[in-house]
Design a protein around this nucleic acid. Structure first.
Lengths: 221, 221, 221, 221
DNA sequence: GATGAATGAGAATTCATTCAT
DNA sequence: GATGAATGAATTCTCATTCAT
């Protein structure tokens, strides 16, 4: 968090103000502007000119650093995904039980989505486009690092009799993500459909608690 | 030919083959083409020319019937939402218990999404665009007709002691939708992230069963 | 000759001033402008904007009628080649002898090139580009219609003992074209290299006569 | 590496590996790349970036050594023309007769064109552009060195009665060049028009022989 | 109701050239 | 001498929309 995305100019080998530093800064400015605009308006809804205007750079630089609009989009996608990796650490390691670990995961993921709307947006845009660019990313970025840990937790929980034995780690992860994602992916339509303001922090908090209880107990008494 | 996809030409006041009928058919052809293209490529990714080519009509007709590209998109959105109304009937009315009713709702919704990919797509496109057009639609279309029925079911279930008392009808509906939607909204990225082919019917069926069990029991033994 | 290239608006079915007529006129104006500019500056040296400015039409019309810059170039190439077909008629039909026929051909071709600089230019540009677009043209346009007639003339001339027996119709045609073409294809460099103004009609006339004599007698006494 | 294509690094004053030598080598690499690309794609079809990529040098170097793209083109043109000077030597000096000398000239020129396609290309590009850059070259390069020798040969041939007296040295040279050049300048279009593969060495050899016979005897028996 | 030609603004991308280091 | 980042104008082509018929 204190290691900002624009780390390029923090490189000690590239002193502030040097050509290399300013170049990296330019690249980063473009990427940030693109990230914001792609998230807000999608790939087709964003023009290179808008990115250029937002980043206050010469248009040619976009092609200098990213080769094409598609390349710029791919870079933005990669950047946003690498943020997700910050979640994993410490969720499971010191959890007193499998149940607590799963609840922590739901909580952390729910809050991550709230704090990273560009992640949600880019993820959905990408899926709507058939996941084209996502397929090009290295699996280091796209693989859920949580999955392995989650598998162990679930195995232990089942073995100890804490968790129901039919639980599958892959579908469990999807369930967890679905319970969180829906509050952000369908925020605008759901707000109207169910008559709740899903932009209101209190509503979101209530949603998280509701999902946690569902997870723990199901709906049955 | 006289049994077009849409209901327009079925209007008894518009005899088949009449000018009025052909006019309605033209309108319907445009709307169907737009629906498909908007779902596939989104608003910005679809050009009026593509719709015109797909519908095999004169470009001017789009503006005749829908005034603008935005109008066409709104019509497509409305059409796709009206499909959702087909769900409600008969889910709750003859359910033996509240639990069964909720499980039925999850099942029906899950399968509805599978069979209506354009609904999923347009819904997500719309949310990504801030729900602008959705807000313009009449609440007859956007209100979840299930919500009232769901509320009664839940109230009864809680009263009878079948359901846990903290269950909230609005968040419950969101939970249900989230458990279903995630399989379609994030199909492409999740397939890679968790290593499952979410396009495979068997995988989807397993996902539905997993969600149903979670709903019923939670994860705890 | 009195059937101008812009024949579209002469179509009796399309009265002058009608929409169809004006549309054809627009297409023709674009083609004429393109012809002139491509001949003068080549494919890469000509911008669509320049064509648009010269034709005084909206840029979109170029793509409406010719789909792409390449399509426009191909149309120009085809147009210029169809002009060549005007040569053939009556060169050989009433020639008193094979020798006279060959000399007439040289003369007519030489003068055709003089009067059709765009033909020369486009032909050379096309060869420099590897003949790409030429290959796409229908053979009706690209086949030398003279070749068959020339073959007969030469056969008769050889049979009657008028012509040397080793003469080959294909290489003979190439020789004839080469003797003419060089005066136009290399006009600027040759003018300086040999110290003649190849733009001067008198010089060109002298060149034609020199080529005719060479053709008739060779250089030997 | 120390035997570069150009003569620059052979300069004894610039020892191999010295800064001067490497500088000359850089210049030469640029020139060679430019030569090849200008010949293949023409002036407008070649971008400085392509030259830079082909020569694997820094873009700034082009401007350092050649001031501008035009300067680079002029240098390429000059280089290619200086190759032509290699023809002259020894064609006429020991020819047994004027006729043999002319035939040798045709043969040598024909083969020179075959072996120097960049010469043909650049020559034609230049003519199509109106000979602009050619006019800027020093006459040492552009003057046909053969012309004087050819004049003497022809004068002697006419005087001795070997050659026809109306032969003009300038038009004669043009005739000779035309008979050769056409096989290369119009290679692609003629191949299709006359139905011969002008890329085939055997066809070219037949063409040369045909031209030689025409030169010697004309077409008449 | 239906047609297709026409428009001008804007799309992504590339151009030759210069700058600071 | 050599580097590569930076520039602004120009490139081909597409956009949503309107016009006259």
């Amino acid at each position: 968090m204190n290691r900002s995305a624009a780390s390029a100019s923090d490189d000690p080998a590239a002193p502030v103000g040097s050509r290399v530093a300013r170049a990296a800064e330019t690249r980063e400015r473009i990427l940030q502007a693109a990230l914001r605009l792609f998230a807000k308006r999608g790939y087709d809804g964003t023009s290179v000119d808008e990115v250029v205007a937002a980043a206050k750079i010469n248009k040619r630089m976009v092609y200098h650093y990213f080769a094409s609009k598609q390349g710029l989009y791919a870079a933005a996608l990669e950047r946003v995904f690498s943020q997700l990796a910050t979640i994993e650490s410490g969720i499971f390691t010191d959890a007193p039980s499998a149940g607590v670990a799963l609840e922590r995961l739901l909580t952390v993921y729910f809050n991550f989505l709230r704090e990273h709307p560009e992640f949600v947006s880019l993820l959905l845009w990408e899926n709507l486009q058939g996941g084209r660019h996502f397929k090009e990313l290295s699996s280091a970025v796209t693989k859920a690092p949580i999955l392995d840990a989650l598998g162990k937790i679930i195995d232990q929980g089942i073995a100890s009799g804490e968790l129901r034995p039919e639980i599958d780690k892959q579908h469990m992860l999807i369930n967890l993500i679905g319970l969180c994602m829906i509050y952000y992916s369908n925020q605008h339509t759901l707000s109207r459909t169910v008559g709740l303001d899903l932009n209101d922090p209190a509503t979101l908090e209530a949603g998280l608690q509701h999902a946690l209880r569902l997870l723990r107990h199901g709906f049955l008494q």
